[in-house]
Simulated assay, not measured.
Amino acid sequence: MSLKRNVLVLNQDYSPLTVCSVERAFLLVFLNKAEMISPVPNVYLHTVDTSYQAPSVIKVSRYISVPYKGVILSRQNVFRRDNHECQYCGTNRDLTLDHLVPRSKGGTSSWKNLVTACKHCNAKKGDYAPAEVGMKLRKEPFKPSYIMFLKTSNGSVFDEWRPFLQLKSEAL
């Protein structure tokens, strides 16, 4: 097994908290700071004289209060939401951010007003709304959920994670 695989970490109430490395998860379980909820099927970590099941989902032993569980608006998070593709032409080169309603016309820096755009499309759009220059978005911008970012930080959702993420399998 590749130790690069991530482990889903649940809070004491079984709500998703974060993801961590297999090494970190194993250490938390070994030190009784977490319990293994679901192992990776047929995968073991070996020491000189013992084998341990590799964790896929763990639950921390003490509740961790998380005051803000949203996704912070940042350049990299907008790129992640948009799959690192220009929302006008689909390229993944020379990317920048574009305000749909330009700041000079009262547009704000918000999840629904920012999209990933290549430099060419951003220059073509200029200081106008996309419709004013005949440009169409590939998809409408949205505020991503925390669970969506747990999924994208891993690249995929493992079967063992699905019951805890409360998402339909088609959405993953």
Rank of each mutant, 00 (worst) to 15 (best):
M1H: 12
L3T: 11
L3I: 11
L3A: 08
K4M: 12
R5H: 08
N6G: 04
L8I: 05
N11F: 13
N11A: 09
D13K: 09
Y14Q: 08
Y14R: 04
P16L: 07
V19W: 05
S21K: 15
S21C: 09
E23N: 12
R24A: 14
L28A: 12
F30N: 09
L31E: 10
K33L: 14
K33A: 09
K33M: 12
A34F: 01
A34V: 06
N42K: 06
N42E: 10
T47C: 01
V48F: 11
D49N: 14
T50P: 00
S51H: 07
S51Q: 13
Y52W: 15
Q53R: 15
A54W: 00
P55K: 06
I58D: 02
I58G: 02
K59D: 00
V60Y: 11
R62W: 07
R62L: 15
Y63I: 08
Y63M: 08
I64H: 08
S65H: 15
P67S: 09
Y68W: 08
Y68I: 10
G70H: 03
V71E: 08
I72D: 09
L73E: 05
R75G: 01
R75F: 11
Q76D: 13
Q76S: 11
Q76K: 12
N77S: 14
V78I: 15
F79Y: 14
R80V: 13
R80W: 10
R81F: 09
N83S: 13
H84A: 07
E85G: 00
C86H: 01
C86E: 05
Q87A: 02
T91G: 11
T91W: 02
N92P: 00
R93V: 09
R93C: 03
D94T: 06
L95I: 08
L97F: 04
L100C: 03
L100A: 01
V101Y: 00
P102D: 11
S104D: 04
G107L: 03
T108E: 14
S110I: 07
S110P: 10
W111C: 05
K112W: 00
N113L: 05
L114E: 00
K119T: 12
H120L: 14
H120F: 13
C121V: 05
C121I: 05
N122Q: 08
G126S: 02
G126W: 04
D127C: 01
A129S: 03
A129Y: 13
P130N: 03
A131P: 00
E132Y: 03
K136E: 11
K139G: 09
F142H: 14
K143N: 06
P144F: 07
S145Q: 11
S145V: 07
M148E: 13
F149K: 06
F149P: 09
F149L: 06
L150C: 04
K151R: 15
T152G: 00
N154G: 03
N154Y: 01
G155P: 04
G155I: 03
S156P: 00
V157K: 10
V157M: 13
E160V: 04
E160R: 08
L165D: 13
L165M: 14
S169F: 01
E170D: 12
E170T: 12
A171L: 11
